[in-house]
Measured scan of single mutants.
Amino acid sequence: WVPTKREEKYGVAFYNYDARGADELSLQIGDTVHILETYEGWYRGYTLRKKSKKGIFPASYIHLKE
């Protein structure tokens, strides 16, 4: 896992994603996520609506905010 280059990196989910394991994070369309790390097509972070739950999710489900 590699920390993100920018201190504040955010994105928005444009697909729903159902977590398949305890380390994964479920997403709903429109969720804003804070991205902490990246690795081979995956991000690690949390949604702003539930900051206490961190997990991994596919990068392809996220539109990055500039």
Rank of each mutant, 00 (worst) to 15 (best):
W1T: 08
W1R: 07
W1E: 07
W1K: 08
W1M: 07
W1A: 08
W1F: 09
W1G: 08
V2M: 09
V2I: 13
V2P: 07
V2C: 11
V2A: 11
V2T: 12
V2S: 10
V2D: 08
V2G: 08
V2Y: 09
P3S: 09
P3M: 03
P3D: 09
P3F: 04
P3L: 05
T4G: 08
T4K: 06
T4W: 13
T4C: 15
T4Q: 09
T4F: 09
K5D: 15
K5I: 09
K5H: 11
K5W: 09
K5C: 13
K5S: 14
K5M: 10
K5A: 12
R6A: 14
R6M: 11
R6Y: 11
R6L: 11
R6G: 13
R6E: 12
E7Y: 13
E7C: 14
E7M: 10
E7T: 13
E7R: 09
E7W: 14
E8H: 15
E8N: 12
E8F: 12
E8C: 14
E8K: 09
E8A: 12
E8M: 11
E8S: 11
K9N: 06
K9G: 06
K9S: 13
K9V: 10
K9W: 12
K9A: 11
K9F: 09
Y10L: 07
Y10D: 01
Y10I: 11
Y10E: 05
G11D: 02
G11L: 13
G11S: 02
G11P: 00
G11T: 04
G11C: 09
V12K: 05
V12M: 06
V12S: 03
V12E: 05
V12H: 04
V12F: 06
A13F: 02
A13P: 03
A13T: 04
A13K: 05
A13V: 13
A13H: 01
A13L: 03
F14H: 13
F14P: 00
F14C: 15
F14Q: 13
F14Y: 12
F14N: 08
F14W: 14
Y15W: 14
Y15A: 15
Y15S: 14
Y15E: 15
Y15M: 15
Y15R: 15
N16K: 11
N16F: 06
N16C: 11
Y17N: 00
Y17M: 00
Y17F: 08
Y17G: 03
D18P: 05
D18S: 12
D18K: 12
D18R: 10
D18F: 09
D18C: 12
D18Y: 11
D18I: 13
A19S: 06
A19C: 05
A19M: 02
A19P: 06
A19I: 01
A19E: 03
A19W: 01
R20F: 06
R20N: 10
R20P: 04
R20E: 08
R20A: 08
R20K: 13
R20L: 09
G21H: 12
G21I: 04
G21M: 08
G21K: 10
G21E: 09
G21C: 12
A22T: 10
A22H: 11
A22S: 12
A22Q: 12
A22K: 10
D23N: 10
D23A: 07
D23R: 05
D23M: 07
D23G: 13
D23Y: 07
D23V: 07
D23F: 07
E24S: 01
E24D: 04
E24Q: 09
E24P: 01
E24I: 05
L25V: 07
L25F: 00
L25M: 04
L25A: 01
L25I: 14
L25S: 00
S26Q: 06
S26A: 04
S26D: 11
S26E: 04
S26N: 08
S26C: 08
S26R: 03
S26H: 04
S26L: 03
L27P: 02
L27C: 06
L27A: 00
L27H: 00
L27T: 00
L27V: 02
L27N: 00
L27F: 05
Q28E: 10
Q28P: 00
Q28V: 13
Q28H: 10
Q28L: 11
Q28S: 10
I29D: 02
I29S: 06
I29Q: 07
I29K: 13
I29H: 04
I29P: 04
G30P: 00
G30Y: 03
G30D: 02
G30E: 01
G30W: 07
G30F: 04
D31Y: 05
D31V: 06
D31S: 06
D31C: 06
D31G: 05
D31W: 08
T32S: 08
T32I: 15
T32H: 14
T32Y: 15
T32C: 15
T32P: 07
T32N: 08
V33I: 04
V33N: 00
V33K: 01
V33L: 05
V33F: 02
V33C: 04
H34S: 06
H34M: 13
H34Q: 05
I35V: 05
I35P: 01
I35L: 14
I35S: 00
I35K: 00
I35H: 00
I35Y: 02
L36S: 06
L36A: 02
L36F: 07
L36E: 07
L36V: 06
L36K: 01
L36G: 01
L36R: 01
E37N: 04
E37D: 07
E37G: 07
E37C: 10
E37Q: 07
E37T: 04
T38G: 06
T38Y: 14
T38F: 13
T38W: 11
Y39T: 09
Y39C: 14
Y39R: 14
Y39P: 00
E40F: 07
E40C: 12
E40G: 13
E40H: 07
E40S: 09
G41C: 08
G41N: 09
G41H: 06
G41R: 05
G41V: 05
G41S: 09
G41L: 06
G41Q: 06
W42R: 00
W42L: 02
W42E: 00
W42G: 02
Y43G: 01
Y43D: 01
Y43T: 00
Y43H: 04
Y43M: 08
Y43A: 05
R44D: 00
R44S: 05
R44H: 08
R44I: 07
R44V: 09
R44E: 04
G45N: 02
G45I: 03
Y46S: 04
Y46N: 05
Y46Q: 02
Y46C: 09
Y46R: 04
Y46F: 06
Y46W: 05
T47D: 07
T47V: 15
T47P: 02
T47C: 12
T47S: 10
L48S: 10
L48D: 09
L48F: 12
L48R: 04
L48H: 09
L48K: 04
R49D: 13
R49M: 10
R49N: 15
R49V: 09
R49A: 13
K50T: 11
K50Q: 15
K50V: 12
K50S: 14
K50D: 15
K50F: 10
K51Y: 09
K51W: 10
K51V: 12
K51F: 08
S52D: 15
S52G: 10
S52H: 13
S52K: 10
K53M: 08
K53V: 12
K53L: 11
K54L: 14
K54V: 15
K54G: 04
K54E: 08
K54D: 05
K54C: 14
K54N: 08
K54P: 08
K54H: 10
G55C: 08
G55R: 01
G55N: 03
G55E: 00
G55F: 03
G55M: 02
I56H: 03
I56N: 04
I56V: 09
I56S: 04
I56C: 10
I56R: 08
I56L: 12
F57K: 03
F57L: 02
F57C: 06
F57A: 01
F57R: 01
F57Y: 00
P58Q: 03
P58I: 13
P58F: 07
P58M: 04
P58D: 01
P58R: 03
P58V: 06
P58A: 06
P58K: 03
A59H: 05
A59R: 07
A59W: 05
A59F: 03
A59N: 04
A59M: 09
A59C: 07
S60D: 08
S60I: 10
S60L: 08
S60E: 12
S60N: 09
S60F: 07
S60W: 06
S60V: 11
S60K: 14
Y61P: 03
Y61E: 01
Y61S: 08
Y61K: 06
Y61I: 15
Y61L: 12
I62A: 01
I62C: 07
I62L: 02
I62T: 03
I62G: 02
I62Q: 00
H63F: 10
H63D: 08
H63P: 01
H63G: 07
H63E: 12
H63K: 14
H63R: 14
H63A: 11
H63Y: 11
H63T: 11
H63V: 14
L64Q: 03
L64H: 03
L64I: 13
L64R: 05
L64S: 02
L64N: 04
K65R: 12
K65H: 12
K65F: 15
K65Y: 15
K65S: 12
K65L: 15
K65I: 15
K65T: 13
E66G: 13
E66V: 12
E66W: 10
E66D: 12
E66H: 13
E66R: 12
E66C: 14
E66K: 13
E66F: 10
E66M: 12
